[in-house]
Simulated assay, not measured.
Amino acid sequence: MEDFIVLVPLALFALFALSLMLTDFREHRLPNRMTLPLIAVTFACLFLHLASTGKVQPYVNSIVAGLLTFGLGYLLVKYFDLGMGDVKLLTSLNALLAWHSPWLILYSLAIGFVGASVWAIVVWIKTRNPRARIALGPYLIVGFAAVIAQPTTELITAVV
């Protein structure tokens, strides 16, 4: 029953997902008013789960994944063309995935980056501009949703 708390950040993600995707497509940014609460709620709920169950390993996995995501993401923002909104979004999403299994992060990123790459090729061919910008957030969200669906279903089934 204590695992139910992990569904709270997923519910918040579901509430914000469409708005995040539309905003990123329109404005090429992911607003702090949605990404920062996702981070805060994710880590608060994971800490509450730790406090109520004493299960340290899922919490450690989540913290390490979140810190690595933010650190590596910051470097990508600084030296390459990744947006900070994408990094903040990935910090919370990867922490949630790592709670289930750190390997899920790789699957989620693979789906997201392949989807974004295919779309980028289409845009670049259409506009004949290899520097055309694309929104990465929606593809990261789709990758996350595709990967988290099965563990979430198992969690809901176990709780109910």
Rank of each mutant, 00 (worst) to 15 (best):
L68K: 02
L68F: 08
T69L: 01
T69I: 01
T69D: 07
Y74V: 03
Y74E: 05
Y74L: 14
L75K: 07
L75N: 06
L75G: 06
L76W: 04
L76F: 13
V77T: 12
K78Y: 11
K78L: 12
Y79L: 07
D81M: 06
D81S: 13
L82N: 01
L82S: 00
G83E: 04
M84K: 00
G85K: 01
G85C: 05
D86W: 03
D86P: 00
V87M: 00
V87I: 14
V87D: 00
L90A: 15
S92Q: 02
S92N: 02
N94S: 13
N94D: 08
A95H: 10
L96P: 05
L96Y: 04
L97P: 11
L97C: 09
W99K: 01
H100L: 10
S101F: 05
S101P: 03
S101E: 09
S101C: 07
S101I: 01
P102C: 14
W103L: 15
L104N: 02
I105Q: 03
Y107A: 13
Y107E: 14
S108E: 02
S108F: 03
L109K: 06
L109H: 11
L109E: 09
L109M: 15
A110G: 12
A110Y: 13
A110C: 14
I111G: 02
I111C: 11
I111K: 03
G112F: 07
F113P: 06
A116R: 10
A116T: 08
A116K: 04
A116P: 06
W119F: 15
W119D: 09
W119Y: 15
A120I: 02
I121S: 06
V122R: 02
V123N: 09
V123F: 06
I125V: 14
I125P: 02
K126V: 09
K126L: 08
T127S: 15
R128A: 13
R128Q: 14
R128K: 15
N129L: 11
P130K: 12
A132V: 02
R133T: 09
I134S: 08
I134T: 09
G137Q: 04
G137V: 06
G137W: 02
G137T: 09
G137M: 03
P138G: 08
P138M: 11
Y139M: 08
L140W: 01
L140D: 05
I141C: 03
I141G: 07
V142Q: 03
V142A: 14
V142S: 02
F144D: 09
A145L: 10
A145N: 06
